[in-house]
Amino acid sequence: MTDFSDLSRELDRWLDMGRKANLWWRDDDACRASPALTRLVAAARRHHVPLALAVIPARLDGSLETFIEEEGGADVTILQHGFAHENHAAAGGRAVECGGARPAEAVMAECAEGHRSLRSAFGRRFRKVMVPPWNRIEGPVAEALPAAGYEALSVFGPRPVALAPEGLMEVNAHLDLLTWKGGARFAGAEKLVRLCAERLEDRRLGRSDSAEPFGILTHHLDHDEATWDFLDRLLALLAAHPAVRWPSAAELFDAKERAT
């Protein structure tokens, strides 16, 4: 049984200082209804935690629209996960859809098509937030997002690593439950507990941006039983601790300044 005591102690330190750790939860690669998505949304409902689903527009199946309408509840928000989750990297480059061998104008034309699709399917649940596939976006594409009306960018890692252009918020994920080298698999409970505690400590001590909500990242289509079990235990701890706060989508993506 995994020991969560290091994480609990770190949260207790936040509480002793009279501070709240703002957390959010992003799940990537949604495109259709599935047993895994049902399980994901059930976990969000069980722990009363808001869920942001990053949806791939070009792969959107009508079953997802129906599922979200009927089962999503008030705290499921839809974000845009690129366009088709296809690699357009230049020869020898790392996988990227928001950039690569194509001009920024072509990428943004796809983004606009994806935006229209998601807005039509999900209405007010949809926020114009770009979550680039593989958490990679190249400079010219990122710089074009504010003029296209995007509210925010969400990649992986602390904000100073990949600063958004002026006029665009950046709200990232910081703890990925999966590891990807050699194929998606559970990153391991002990490692994840340690990383979560360490990264929250970095915020508390000012070693990273304490104003940025700490993001949990999942990929429901790639979870095995160990991942599901860990997610449930992690959410149970984080949702119950008085030092943790889960901002709504409106708070995440509307506020220009936040304090932890």
Rank of each mutant, 00 (worst) to 15 (best):
D61M: 06
G62F: 09
H47F: 15
R59K: 13
L60V: 09
P50G: 14
L53W: 07
L51P: 11
E71L: 01
E71Y: 05
I68S: 00
F67M: 08
H48L: 14
I56V: 15
I56T: 12
V55F: 01
P57F: 12
H48F: 10
D61C: 08
P57W: 11
A52E: 12
E71M: 07
G72V: 06
A74F: 06
A58I: 03
L64F: 05
A58Y: 06
V55G: 04
H48W: 10
F67P: 01
T77G: 03
E65N: 07
A58G: 09
T77V: 13
A74D: 15
G73F: 02
R59S: 08
R59D: 04
L64P: 03
F67L: 06
V76E: 00
I68G: 00
R59Q: 14
D75E: 14
S63L: 04
H48M: 13
S63Y: 11
E65K: 15
P50E: 07
A58V: 04
P50A: 13
G62Y: 11
D75M: 06
I56Q: 06
G62I: 00
E71S: 12
L53Y: 08
V76Q: 01
H47E: 13
A52K: 06
E70F: 00
G72C: 05
V76T: 13
D61L: 08
H47Y: 14
V76F: 01
D75I: 01
V55N: 03
T66L: 11
G73S: 05
L60K: 04
G62M: 09
I56M: 11
P57H: 12
G62A: 11
V49Y: 06
H47G: 13
V49E: 10
E65H: 11
L64S: 07
